[in-house]
Design a protein around this nucleic acid. Structure first.
Lengths: 240, 240
DNA sequence: ACTGATCTGTGACGCGGGTCACATGCACGC
DNA sequence: GCGTGCATGTGACCCGCGTCACAGATCAGT
């Protein structure tokens, strides 16, 4: 099969190998078959916008491959990145269910494969497949949980340093680096974007990194960051 | 029927007059009948704690009467009030669906009537009643939407004044006061609590109110607040 | 290799608002 | 009445960090 943007396309959900890992995709065969009938498998290049906050909901986007940046932004252009969505996540779900406008903006930061389903088709699908409906509830709970964490982080922390430390710890707990005592992580985002994730300014992020390096808590090796002192980072993170 | 805490108890969901107004409660009779079988109608005095953040989910609490304060708090005691839940809302829903710990704390601020349903019972109920399951998805979408607004307010605003103005406008848009050009609202919360709603300190709230009064934008009449200049308030709210 | 463009690093400055420390007001019970 | 407790007001202080203004660094395109 031809693969735009240099990707291998996952052709059918029925034969997708990752199915069982993913909350939403792991449906009984009958449901999956009817899902096959209404989905549009699409591919996007890096930097594509799936939907914009405030738009009326067109439908859901099941992310199969690549990462998507979810953000909200103020009228003055100030932006807050809520999270980077990973494969398996369903985007635009709550807006599609409730019929209200998308509450955030979704923009690809890798080439992505996405299954799109139109709103009416999806709602009909949910009526017919109770188990899918429950999966949706699970996904939404997950999203809500995430949002609560975001609120906690933004609302209850005392300093930018605290939030940065928490972000780094969170990142380092992925990819099985959690256990290691000196976890490494790829810095895929610019200081600007990191600033937008923790609600601060770019300069502050630069200064905070400089400080962490000076104190030997982290160390940069090209674009990977080594956490030399996880405990120190934890102390900073929870001076809350 | 005896009514603890000076309330009239709504005995059965089937005969409840408010049913149709409420997202979750408006279920087909068959579903409602089986809901009757698993629910525990309970009453709480003012100040009762329904659940605490971090607890394993015991089940859901359908709020029938009274208001409930939903908050998260940091280890140092600093508290953020997310919202004041009104009758019709289902509390503890996302935790009960996902099985993760309650993400916030629910405390009554009026005498309340609540229908409690145990987690296992509720999950079984959802498996059997697809329409209820969809209602749950709707409720969760609603909650998610709310949380997104909270994030936006906390993360994208420049000053405490802005957030207070937004809160006042939001409050004034309830109870049909929206249309009036000088809407009034009951100040049911202390400055301390208002501070916790917008993530600032009590003193700042006091100072902001003093300023708004001096500028003739609002006016206090006992415990009711009159908004004299809605436009000025809007300007403050969206200097964002 | 030259040239923008985009990212990173750093100093100076100033404002917002958190914190502390009080004074005052207002309701409650006894 | 009087004291106790909680809500509200207000001044003084000061520190975190946003903003502005640059200087280097890194990267991409031709």
């Amino acid at each position: 099969m031809l693969s735009p943007y240099g990707m291998d396309i996952i052709e059918s959900c029925l034969t997708c190998k990752m199915r069982t890992d993913r909350i939403f995709c792991d449906l009984p065969t009958s449901a999956l078959q009817s899902f096959e009938g209404i989905k549009y498998a699409t591919a996007y290049p890096k930097g594509a916008v799936l939907f914009v906050e405030g738009q009326a909901p067109r439908g859901i986007f099941v992310l199969c491959k690549g990462r998507v940046k979810l953000s909200i932004c103020a009228t003055d252009g100030k932006t807050l990145i809520l999270k980077i969505a990973e494969p398996g996540e369903v985007l635009g779900l709550s807006a599609t269910v409730s019929g209200k406008a998308y509450e955030l903006t979704a923009e690809t930061i890798d080439p992505c494969q996405v299954n799109f389903v139109k709103r009416e088709d999806f709602l009909r699908f949910l009526k017919d497949h109770a188990d899918a409906c429950f999966k949706v509830a699970e996904q939404l709970s997950e999203k809500y949980n995430n949002a609560c964490h975001e609120v906690r982080s933004l609302g209850l922390s005392h300093s930018a340093a605290e939030k940065l430390a928490r972000l780094l710890l969170e990142w380092s707990s992925k990819n099985g680096e959690a256990a290691k005592q000196e976890p490494r992580l790829k810095l895929a985002l610019t200081h600007e974007e990191i600033a937008q994730m923790i609600g601060t300014s770019r300069e502050t992020v630069t200064r905070l990194f400089a400080d962490l390096k000076k104190r030997q808590i982290v160390q940069a090796k090209g674009s990977t960051l080594v956490i030399r002192n996880k405990n120190a980072l934890r102390v900073i993170a929870s001076s809350n």
